[in-house]
Amino acid sequence: MDLSALRVEEVQNVINAMQKILECPICLELIKEPVSTKCDHIFCKFCMLKLLNQKKGPSQCPLCKNDITKRSLQESTRFSQLVEELLKIICAFQLDTGLEYANSYNFAKKENNSPEHLKDEVSIIQSMGYRNRAKRLLQSEPENPSLQETSLSVQLSNLGTVRTLRTKQRIQPQKTSVYIELGSDSSEDTVNKATYCSVGDQELLQITPQGTRDEISLDSAKKAACEFSETDVTNTEHHQPSNNDLNTTEKRAAERHPEKYQGSSVSNLHVEPCGTNTHASSLQHENSSLLLTKDRMNVEKAEFCNKSKQPGLARSQHNRWAGSKETCNDRRTPSTEKKVDLNADPLCERKEWNKQKLPCSENPRDTEDVPWITLNSSIQKVNEWFSRSDELLGSDDSHDGESESNAKVADVLDVLNEVDEYSGSSEKIDLLASDPHEALICKSERVHSKSVESNIEDKIFGKTYRKKASLPNLSHVTENLIIGAFVTEPQIIQERPLTNKLKRKRRPTSGL
């Protein structure tokens, strides 16, 4: 017993010596996670971090007073192994002897410093981030199933929210409404489509400006004509009531908005009720001829604005009016007729031209339509002016008669200019590109209106002035400009410049 007691005391002394060697000089306990400095002193990692955080910048070693920084600290694995072995020896000594260790306080702390507990403390002390800490805590505590279930439920809930957000973003663009038309193969669909197009076009005519009305009406008319041609002859009974509906809707729209509806009346003529396609083609032919005449008058307007600064050229074209007008009339009417003589009366030419125009518009179905009313009214106005011209010709002399006839021709041009508003800008460009020769010939008609105004002003003063002067240069210039014009009389060319000069002198006297 005595020997055993001596041996136990010796073992205890050895353990105490080893414990003092492996103590931390700051906390005076076994080193936890030993860290060595540049001066080869060993301290606990937790104690050194606490010391360095007390001051900004480098701190001093507690043993040798040298500078220490966080970067200079290094882990010493050898001392950590020695500490672990010492703890194992102490545990074995207690089991063999059955005696508690003399320094129970220190031993209890040593026992608490088992490797499992050290790992837990290291995970908390090290600044490795929240995710690494959570992982280490889960690994160190596998015995708690409640914690695992809560963490898994949190992760699953987070994943569910992310997935639901993604699915919502994908589903939202798919919620856009999609309209699908289910059509049938019955023959009544074509008639319904035609009526739908006509009503939609009328609404567009009321909303859209004048520049786009003609294009819309032309497209709708083409669509309706194609649909009529596709149907068989057996379905004509269905077409006639639908066309009557079209007429009623167009008349109502014309009564409500007459000014807006006139812009599309000329282009919509071939959508009118037709028994066969031949009647629609004839109407299209007549409309094309009318559009040609209207576009020519538009060309004359532009030329008149350009040549208004040259009064000499405008005056020299006075007698070329009849010849150029004959050529335009021959090209406007498709019928083959002989040219009228140069010395014939211009009023007779106008009456013949009106007689040619009237039969074209005397179809029984055309008179029933609303768009032809505008053309009939313009023709009636022309006839009224010609009836007035006959009365004026009986009273005035030959020279005054010529000037009045020219004035009436200008009035006719004004009437025809009203129809110019109905034609589109695209048709003007096509006419100029296809028929430049006709445009040059028809330019002379509009330029002549300037000389007509001068004659009217001469009649106000009650006299006409003449001068025997020749202007050969002007006649040559005008002959080169206009290709299809005829030779003019030299006496009238000489008379016109004198009248304008005298007018300039006598205007201030009349004002006084």
Rank of each mutant, 00 (worst) to 15 (best):
S157Q: 06
L22T: 02
G183H: 07
E143G: 05
P142A: 03
A17L: 01
L165V: 10
N158F: 06
I125A: 06
Q74R: 04
L28G: 14
L3D: 01
N113A: 06
N53D: 11
K55G: 12
Q94Y: 05
E100H: 12
L73K: 03
Q60F: 00
E75G: 11
L30P: 07
A102H: 04
Q139K: 11
I26D: 02
P34E: 01
S157K: 04
Q169N: 02
N16V: 05
I31P: 15
T161R: 10
K110E: 13
S72F: 12
T161V: 05
A102C: 12
E188K: 08
A221V: 00
T161G: 09
D189M: 14
L147A: 12
R170D: 13
V191C: 13
I15W: 06
V11S: 12
S184V: 09
V178R: 15
R163G: 07
L30T: 13
G98Q: 13
T150G: 11
R166Q: 05
G160K: 03
N158G: 08
R163C: 05
T69D: 02
L156Q: 04
V8G: 03
E100I: 12
I90C: 13
K175D: 09
K45M: 14
L3M: 15
Q148A: 14
L28D: 15
F79T: 01
K56E: 13
D2R: 10
L51E: 07
S80W: 02
K56W: 10
A134M: 03
E29F: 02
E100Q: 02
E141W: 03
G183P: 10
I21D: 03
L30H: 00
V191A: 07
D189P: 04
S146E: 05
K175A: 08
V178E: 11
K55F: 15
E143F: 07
I26A: 08
Q81T: 10
Y130D: 08
Q172I: 03
I68G: 01
T150E: 12
K20P: 01
Q126V: 09
M128A: 06
S186R: 09
Q172V: 13
R78E: 03
D120T: 09
E116L: 09
K70I: 01
A5P: 02
K65W: 15
A5R: 11
R136N: 15
